[in-house]
Design a protein around this nucleic acid. Structure first.
Length: 566
RNA sequence: CCUUCCAUAGUUCAAUGGAUAGAACAAGAGACUUCUAAUCUCUAGAUCUAAGUUCGAUUCUUAGUGGGAGGACCA
């Protein structure tokens, strides 16, 4: 049952009865303040001028013709002509039962039923350490992926890994010339770290030394042609190490990919397609093949360089091709940093001229930069924040906080990982998509305040109550006491999911969960829930259970796990 | 120079064109014989500037100011 739709229909019927103009869109929203009712409608103010009437009078008239509904307790006219709807106790009783019964399905919708939804994110480069930006695209991409799944789409979680290109050549040159033995260490991170150092070494020399530069360009060519056996050995080993390491990171972050696209797999198709369209879409210029974005208000970009090698642009064209060949998506989402926004526009434009679907069905989500406000990792200008350091620092900090708990050491380790990831992901996702994130470790990991751990803690509190109860009887009557803010918020969960999907921004869910948790903690502080003499004893248990379920489902959509104790 | 994004309490963020612009942190005051006080309650504090659109603007348009990003062989 969709109460919003019911209200909309009541208003439409009323309008018909008074015989005023029918409106396509009747806006029904939640007022900012809970005291102003559960839903409000501004239609009287919109119609007033056209009908040449006073908005408040018109509102009264509309109200008079709205028929009774068992889920609406009263209707009031307020302000300059708002029609406010107050839901009945029966409605809240009904909504709690619904949540209780739907369990892990609570909040789902069918908006994307029958659609193939491709979520591409994280996109690491092999031979390089992954940094804060990758964590951001992961947090955002994984969350939207899960929301699309909740909306009944046929979802595919994918990532595009850079295994060919200049960055690899720099790293290989680095491995050969850094003057260090290959690490014998078995820990994936240590091996990856070594590769990362070699890359940095190569990158530095590339820009400083002309001979090295030429050498690296040659290595780059060999990567594509695989002519040099010795180089191939180093290359293959490095790829293996990188992929091993990335897998450990994905696991820690809670991402499972359906498919890993590799640049080595897309560049040939990309190059072929670009070359086939020379003269039509692309154009030769100074030995390179370019797309003249400047004709469309964008700027020109090189797709195949004068060495005859594909740039990232051509690889992305190849990726379009591969994605459609493999999945034929209805929506293909890609998450990257905002510095690639204009770049992506050009690739999308060029791609759209090859196959219009590539442009029309692609959604590009950009996220801002990560900035650190303070703490151990406080940012020096230009310093890259390594993902591993970021995560480790968070885990250590949580372990330190938990050291006085009566929880065994192994569990603390496991729990701390989940709390640390929650803190990091939540601080990324609570901000509306596309903006820079200022990360304050102390605030992000605080068990109080607007943080991921606070939500996890609220869940723990709710669960510790439920654990003390043997069975919860769902056969509840309407609440005898006053309806709490918790009930007034909890039924709105599905709306927040839809909003997050519509605007591709998980922050609606994040902020909603925070508000809900605050209402729960208020309720918790003012109610003796386990008091059997309470006239609403069973009702409250169902409410707590519903709350716990909502938090669990909501955190899942943010890519965050719940914990049993903390 | 061109393109593009952003501007809200001391700080970090909210607010499909709506009512008294909401939170968190920091500051001040208070609440534990209690289901985890790791919580809760109360107090003080903000829309960059100027025009325009309208019943009504933080939100839309234009101009300005300040900041970020991008602009051919990197990604």
């Amino acid at each position: 049952m969709d109460i919003k739709l019911e209200i909309e229909n009541l208003i439409k019927e009323s309008l018909k009865k008074i015989d005023i103009g029918f409106l396509k869109n009747i806006e029904i929203v939640h007022p900012d303040i809970l005291d102003h009712g559960d839903y409000t409608c501004n239609i009287a103010m919109i119609l007033a001028k056209k009908e040449n009437k006073n908005p408040r009078e018109l509102a009264e008239q509309i109200k008079a013709y709205i028929s009774n509904h068992e889920y609406i307790e009263k209707i009031e006219i307020a302000g300059s002509g708002f029609i406010n709807f107050y839901l009945s106790k029966k409605f809240y009783q009904f909504s709690l039962k619904e949540i209780f019964e739907k369990k892990e399905n609570w909040g789902k919708n069918q908006i994307l039923r029958g659609k193939v939804f491709l979520a591409e994110h994280t996109d690491p480069n092999l031979f390089k350490e992954i940094h804060a930006g990758h964590l951001m695209t992961n947090a955002i991409g994984e969350s939207i992926y899960r929301i699309a799944g909740f909306s009944d789409a046929d979802t595919k979680n994918i990532t595009f890994q850079g295994d060919v290109g200049l960055h690899i050549a720099k790293a290989i040159w680095g491995i050969k010339n850094i003057g260090e033995e290959l690490p014998k260490n078995k820990i994936p991170f240590e091996k990856q770290k070594f590769l990362g150092q070699c890359y940095v070494f190569g990158e530095k020399n590339f820009s400083e030394n002309e001979d090295v530069k030429n050498n690296i360009l040659k290595i780059n060519k060999n990567i594509y042609t695989r002519e040099d056996d010795e180089q191939n050995k180093i290359y293959d080993l490095g790829c293996k190490w990188s992929l091993e390491y990335l897998e450990t990171i994905y696991k820690l972050l809670g991402s499972k990919f359906d498919y890993y696209f590799l640049e080595s797999e897309t560049f040939k198709d990309g190059q072929r397609i670009v070359e086939e369209n020379i003269g039509k879409i692309f154009k030769k210029s100074n030995g390179a093949i370019i797309f003249e974005g400047s004709k469309y208000g964008l700027h020109d970009r090189v797709f195949i360089n004068s060495e005859g090698l594909p740039t990232y642009e051509a690889k992305d064209i190849g990726l379009f091709y591969k994605k459609w060949e493999k999945y034929n998506p209805d929506i293909s989402m890609t998450v990257t940093g905002s510095e690639q926004e204009q770049y992506f526009e050009i690739v999308q434009k060029a791609g759209g001229m090859i196959n219009s679907e590539w442009e029309e069905k692609t959604v590009h989500l950009a996220h801002g930069k990560l900035k650190l406000s303070s703490g151990k990792m406080s940012s020096r200008e230009g310093k890259i924040i390594r993902a591993q350091e970021w995560i480790n620092s968070a885990i250590e900090s949580i372990i330190d906080k938990m050291k006085d708990r009566e929880i065994d050491e192994e569990s603390v380790k496991e729990i701390s990982k989940k709390i640390a990831i929650a803190g990091i992901k939540y601080s990324i996702l609570k901000v509306s998509a596309g903006k820079d994130i200022v990360y304050d470790e102390k605030k992000a990991l605080d068990f109080a305040g607007n943080s991921g751990p606070y939500l996890q803690y609220s869940y723990v509190r709710a669960n510790s109550i439920l654990k003390k109860v043997e069975e919860i009887n769902l056969d509840i009557s309407v609440r005898k006491g006053n309806i709490s803010g918790l009930e007034k918020l909890i039924y709105r969960f599905p709306e927040e999911i839809k909003k997050s999907l519509k605007f591709y921004s998980s922050h609606y869910i994040a902020n909603y969960l925070y508000e809900l948790a605050s209402e729960f903690n208020f309720f918790y502080g003012n109610t003796k829930i386990l008091d059997k003499n309470n006239e609403d004893y069973f009702y409250n248990l169902v409410l707590v259970k519903s709350f716990a379920q909502t938090i669990k489902n909501g955190l899942y959509l943010l890519g965050i796990e719940t914990v049993d104790k903390m």
